[in-house]
Amino acid sequence: MSRRVLVVDDDDDVRRLATMSLSRVGGYDVRSAASGSECLAALDEEIPDVVVLDVMMPTMDGPATLDAIRARRTGYDVPVVFLTAGVGGADVDRLRALSVSGVLHKPFDPLQLPNELGEMLGW
């Protein structure tokens, strides 16, 4: 059974591209959510193998969603990888310091994205 990935991004196109990359190139079983609250709703149904979480989202941003995930009764220990359009440096270090498995950068190469994700998680 292939790995299950939950992609969370408020931008429709980026979400669709990441979904397509991870499913078509990486061969993962990908579901997606357009916001932090949708992400939490999706986790209620099923706990994936990894959550790819956009950082900058309206109302509930990446770190806030991460907090909410870690505060859950079930699936609180799901691996999370941030997907950020930030410029690196101190901002990225701050993200890394949170309980995540890694940080992916936008713009990403859809041909490489599944590999990078897999390496981060030791797949």
């Binding site: 931008d11 196109d13 980026v14 990441a18 990359s21 359009a85 713009p107 990403f108 190469d109 859809p110």
Partner: peptide, 14 residues
Amino acid sequence: LRTPLTSIKGSLQM
């Protein structure tokens, strides 16, 4: 800037 660029670049690469 990066968000639309991500889609453009990614789509073209695919």
